[in-house]
Amino acid sequence: MIGTATVYGLCASGLVAIGLYGLVLHPTPLRKVIAFNLLGSGTFVLFGVAARRGGAAGFLADPVPQAMVITGIVVAFASTALAVALLLRLQETGASSIETTPPEQQDNGAS
C-alpha cells in the first residue's frame, strides 16, 4: 500500500533527477544555481519523508530531520547568495583580465 510519505518520496526522487539534469546540462551559472536549488529541495523532502514516517510519541513527525532540513534550507540560501554574487562579479569584470578594472557602477542614482 502506498502512503502519503511514499508519494512525497517519489516527488523527492523526481526533484533530485530534474535538478541534477539542469545542473549538469545548463551552460549558464544562474540556471545551474536554480537547478541546484531544485536538487536541494528534493534532498530536503527526502528528510521530510523520514520525518513523517517517524511520527511517534505524540509528534506527528520526527522533529530531528525537520530541524536538519531547516538548517539545510538556510545553508542552501547562503550558497545561492554567494553563487549569485560570484556570477554578477564575473559579469562586472568582463572579458578583461586586468586586475584593477573599475567595475561598472550598477546604480547611478543616489549619491
Binding site: I2, A5, T6, G9, L10, A12, S13, G14, V16, A17, I18, L20, Y21, V24, L46, V49, A50, R53, G54, G55, A56, A57, F59, A61, D62, P63, V64
Partner: peptide, 26 residues
C-alpha cells in the same frame, strides 16, 4: 539522472518497519 531517481524511488517505496525515528527520545 533517471538511474539515480530510480534508485532513490526504489528505496523510498520500501520503508523499514518499524519506522526509524528519534521522536521518542526527543
Amino acid at each position: 539522472c533517471s538511474v539515480i531517481a530510480a534508485g532513490l524511488a526504489a528505496i523510498v517505496v520500501m520503508p523499514v518497519e518499524p519506522p526509524a525515528t528519534l521522536a521518542p527520545e526527543a
